[in-house]
Design a protein around this nucleic acid. Sequence first.
RNA 1: GCGCCGGUAGCUCAGCUGGUUAGAGCACACGCCUGAUAAGCGUGAGGUCGGCGGUUCGAGUCCGCCCCGGCGCACCA
Length: 1017
Amino acid sequence: MTPTRAPELRLRNLMTEPAEKAEKSRYKDTVLLPRTDFPMKAGLQQREPELQKHWATTGLYERIRAARQGAKPWVLHDGPPYANGDAHTGTGMNKTLKDMVVKFRTMQGFDSPYVPGWDCHGLPIEHNVLKDLGGKKPDAMTSVKLREMCLDYANGYVDKQRAQFKTLGVLGRWEQPYLTTSPVYEANVLRVFSDLFARGFITRAKRPVHWSWAAQSALAEAELEYEDRTDPSVYVRFPVSSCGKDCKFREHVEELENAGDIWDTLALLIWTTTPWTLPANVAVAASQEAEYVLVSYQRATGDKREHMVLAGALLKTVSDKAKLRDVKVLKTFAGIDLKGVGYNHPFLDAACPVVFAEYVTLSDGTGLVHTAPGHGKEDFETGKREKLPVVCPIDEAGKFFTGERLRKELQLAPTFEDSRGWLAMLQGQNVLKANPLIVEKLRAEGWLLHDEAVFHSYPHCWRTHQPVIFRVTEQWFVNVDHVDADKTFNPEGKTLRKRLLDEIARTQWFPAWGEKRISAMIENRPDWCISRQRFWGIPIPAFADAQSGDLCVDASSLAHVVKLVEQHGSNVWYDDANWPVEKLLPDEARPKQFRGRKLVKMNDIFDVWFESGASHRSVMLADAELADKFPANMYLEGDDQHRGWFQVSLILSVATQGKSPFKQCLTSAFVVDEKGEKGSKSKGNIWAIDKGCADLGADLIRYYFASVNTSEPIPVTYTLIQAAGEGYRKLRNTFRALVGNLFDFDPAKDAVPYDKLLPLDRWALSQARHAIQAMTAGFDRYEFHTAMRALGEFANVTLSAQYVDVCKDRLYCEAADSPTRRSAQTAYWFIAEAMTRLLAPVLVHSVEDMWRHVPHLAGAPDSPHLAQWPDAVVQCKVDATLDAKYRLLFRIKGESDRVLDRLRKEKVLGKGYDGAVSLATDAALAKDLAQLGSPESLTTELCEVLNVSAVALKLDTNAAQLEGFEPAADVKGLWLRVVTSAETACARCYRRTGDVGSISQHASLCKRCAAVVGDRA
RNA sequence: GCGCCGGUAGCUCAGCUGGUUAGAGCACACGCCUGAUAAGCGUGAGGUCGGCGGUUCGAGUCCGCCCCGGCGCACCA
């Protein structure tokens, strides 16, 4: 149906006549237009440093602390960033998230101190210091000197990063942070070790560990990174040399007619991707159940016939790869039949056995596993069970030993002669360089059946990015399956692993899947190798008898060294001149059997993860401000810390305190660039956070971090952050619109009591309450982006598009002191105030300016950071009836807007006040409307909500038949007709109310405006 | 290989325990206002809700399989 319009109602000329202009300017000054100094443009780059300076000089952090003295504690314990390099986007985001949590909890009334810390020991720092010294510690340089240089280096970066974090507006105890290099910190790390030792968790043992030959140190699981690389994949024949008497396999062969020929050319076929481990081979492992075959074949070239054994399931793959010809399966048998088979090491002339192992699979290789207990964890286990020798001919630099040492480490028979030149070739070779040499020599000697390249992921050292190797060395371990006998800690006699899992289940994980992840890691993790062979760290305070080599460490020796370290720092261990062993551990502190003996210090230091994992002890339990607040409420780090700091902290705390050091654990994903690639300095796709703050503004960066889902990879680029500026500016401008109307509002004098407020204003407060609830719920779950979305929608839709737009007439045109204007101002005031508080954890700088532009009651704090979270304010309540009412009224506005827009495009009218709207409803809608108010009050309210000059309501009519009405698109039972008003516009309020000129003193004004203006113009 | 999380408008994402025509912001188009003005308001266009199959009166939502992306674990010899 096309609505008809009376042509005579078309507006003649939308241009303002000169006479009208004059009238408007006459009354202009009587209109109460918004007024505020709160700038539209934030000028963050300039403003933020000023505010930070102000905070520092007025001691804002200390004032917050004082204000919360005695309140219920809520502690976020800081995970220490590494004191090396710039604080970049990732660390900046981490600190920002922490700051938001702390500020939120503080505003909720908790005592929430924030003590930042730094991880200052460790290889990367030592590495960088050594780099400046030419890559190696000069022989003339003492360890103490080197460690001093490392300390200076670390402290330099602590200062640098501290300054960088401050530019983000992060508040905390910056001037007394915790440093892992402080003597107190170090001593408490040693106390954790002492406790573990006393409780029986510590073992020193020879075991295979991940070894970085590039860093020349053992590595923990968390220090491995899997990277892709290409390695040789070789199939090697190990010649069968002997068979025990009752060996089934012997019988199988003997049954064949040409058994003699077979024995002569028979080999076990093994596969490996690490040829450099072949010299350490001591056995071949087979599966008892799997099916194996004895095959006869010819190689791709040459017509010699050979025989070999391998798993039947892998025969085809292998023969295809090696292009074997005329392959014949002579026998099929179970793996167990290989029991008793022996072979000769192909180049070291040693007799080796076939053994069995569970882990032998048929997914790759040959089903016969090359076993080198010196170079593999499972191999080591097998070796232990089968009493195989542990051969490890590789030194700490990843090179084969040389000369006699090599013979010794290979455990060669004294009669072995290197006639084929294997030892000569291997000695001194780096393992990676040895690979091709070994392959070529195997080929030359005929042992190599096939070789190819394999592209696979392989563990690498996280710092040097060189592939790691397995190497058997003597190390210190924390035994994860140890059962603590102390019934107070462990009443049910569980293993530590089980107790860790129990504590994990008791912890709240955000996001929830973190629990699964860390549980799986704990379930599978090996014992923790805590020793490292470097300089820059805390020494493991153990001694050895100079002669016997016996380990000298007990509770009293530990306690003695701990005390010295606490007084003088861990350098005592390295200061031979001032702290010779006799002084470090005098007789009276020694176990009895070592008194009077010559001792030597052992040279291992702690894994840095052990240090940071001990922070619950060194900080939470040792810092005067925190000691009574253990365990911490929250640890918050990147989700890579499930295998890092969270895990090691949990292990050390559960083992020595009997409980988890945290109640909640929040993780964020990694920062990535626009291509979704992980940020890294080498790629140049991350930037120093203080530069970002200087360029973009800290609040904008914080706003961005608060607006994105941090549980998924977070793209961080200037472009994206600048784009987020839209949202920031929208919040800012909406706030500005609110305070602009409060220039003459003093809450103490002018605030209207809640039940005297107009319904529309109470509705706005009800909506604000919804926003506050959503915001609180979002923050409580640490889903800042859902919180910010709720607030953004409130500001954008409810306030900007609906409420503020509709309130203009009341605020601008009513008398300054009129109850309806004061009613709107009361709501504006409350909402502006609440918005400021809600944004305080995020826009830490901007809210200071916002706070100054909102009128306050006496006694209000001078900073929003000292204020309470607004959910305690009762003035603002949910009113479901009003919610429903205005939902409907604004839907009707939508219908009216649609028609108005059409008329605008037809140039029939311009502003909303040019329009007059008639609404007709069916019986059902009429009934709904009747519940919302009298026809008279609804008419008035709709006029206001629709922003038009007149509304006529025709309730319960046969609307479809009314002339000129069209049906609404979305509101059922509604018809409407919009026309241009024939009335004259009021020169002051622009409305066409039909009563302009009724007061002769103000001929161009409507009655309301004339009354308001009175004698003033 | 196993597991987890995602795949909804050009972009960024909402869509709770399955239920009326799938929403918001940005961008875009077209307008209005010039009394939030380097602002504000309105309207519009734009989606086979990754694909296929199933359960159901009804599926973006539940189930199964598959495809794509991210991550974790294991990748061992």
